[in-house]
Each structure stands twice: as C-alpha cells, then as structure tokens.
Amino acid sequence: MGLKREIKFFITCQRYNWLSFLAYRMQAFVWLSLNALFILYGILTVTIIYGVSSGISGWSYYQMLFLIGTTGITVNAVWYLCNPNGLVRQLRSGKLDSTFLRPYSRLNIMLSASGNVDNSTTAISSLIMMAYAASKIGVDAAGMLLYAALMAAGISAFVLFVMALSVLAYLLIRGANFVNGVLNFMSSSSKYPLSIFGFAGQLIFTLLLPIGIASYYPAEFVLGRLSLSSAALVFVLALLVGAASYVLFHKFMKGYVGGGG
C-alpha cells in the first residue's frame, strides 16, 4: 500500500515536471532535440579514432558504439532522476522543507523534485544506438535480458550513490556543482573501456565511483567478455552499493536542519 502511494506520488511529480518543462514549448523542443544529438559526441570521437588508427586493443568499432550507447542510457537515466546541483540549491533555499512534511519518503520527494526530464531524449537516442550496434555485433536475446537486469540493478545503485553524494556535498560545502562535474567525468570516462585506465582506474570506477557496475560490466557481459559467475558478482556488488548508499543517504539527511531564510 505504502509503495503504491509512493509510486503514485512519483508519477504525479513526473507529470508535473513534464508540464513545467513544456510550458516554454520552443525551448522544450530545442532542449529535447539537442539532447538527442549529444550521442553524436561519442559516435564522432570513436569514428575519428577508428578512422585514423586501429582503435583500442580488443574492441571493435561496433563494440565501442555499444559501450557508448550503454553509458548514454545509464548516465541519462541518472540525470533524468536527479540533478545534484539543482537538488542542493533546493535544499539550500529551503524549497523542499514544506514538501518534506508530506507523508512520502524523503528519497522519493528528492528524486521527484530534482531530475531533468529533457535527458530522456539522450537516453532514447543512446538506446537506439546501442540497439543498432547490438544488431551489428549479433547479440542474442537471452544475453540482452541479463544485460538489462544488470543495468537496472546498476542504475538503481548508481542513483542512490549520487543522491547520497549530493546530500553529503550539501552538508560539507553547501554546493554540488562539483557532483554534476563528477557525473560528467564518469560519463566521459565510462564511454571507453575501463581497462584503458589501468587496474587502479578500473577499481575506482567500480567501487569508488560505481559507474562501471551500471554500464561497463553489463556491456562486457553481453559482449562475451564477462562470465556468468562474474556477472552475478557484479549484480551482488550493485545491490551492496545500493544498500550502502541508501543507508548513507538517510544518515546524511539526519544532518539536514532546513534551509532558506
């Protein structure tokens, strides 16, 4: 019953977010179109790299496109749900204080209030590119299903991680512009195989900044580079990161004493 109510609240907020966004139709159209084009950055970079060289060791052109598409879906799903800088600005100005009095979970309220609906088109264009690359590579349906499950677990964990980090940033430095920067940095990094960053880099992007569990490892699995048992470990890791982030989020929120003036 409680979960049903939370979901209903979330959907209502999404509807409101979309209506607010569409209030300025021209800018909404430009935003959505522009965001759909962002995927071109990755495509063009990889096309140039593979046009002038033999590319990155062990990765074909279409496998790289698949990875870029996967990262695009992951990162933009996270952006859709939370914008750390926007969230911290709302906490700072006390805009959420009255909403916190409502009978919904704080996490749900904050997720509903801070996302960017316009990132949906980037996620969709990434999905299209991922599907195109998958068709070129020849990925089987069962593999794709497991890939989707791994990604869903990874994205959930990653969203919780970003939320916890945003609240921590608010408590420590009252700003989260840098958390947006962290997200952009992870987005740029995970478009490429994590192996290029060496063992230390791979460890950082798996445990410290867990974008790897949401995009790189699912992509590796579907491309046949990761065994089923390793994929299961990634799934468990996603659950652990998600649970730890959830606990930390609530712990950090205890330090919130209301904003604004």
Partner: peptide, 11 residues
C-alpha cells in the same frame, strides 16, 4: 589522454 594513449599503444 588515457584514450589516446591506448590508441597509440594499440596502433
């Protein structure tokens, strides 16, 4: 920089 390092190394 890491990306291009990998590209040069592979090529």
């Amino acid at each position: 920089i890491f990306v291009w390092y990998a590209v040069y190394a592979n090529s």
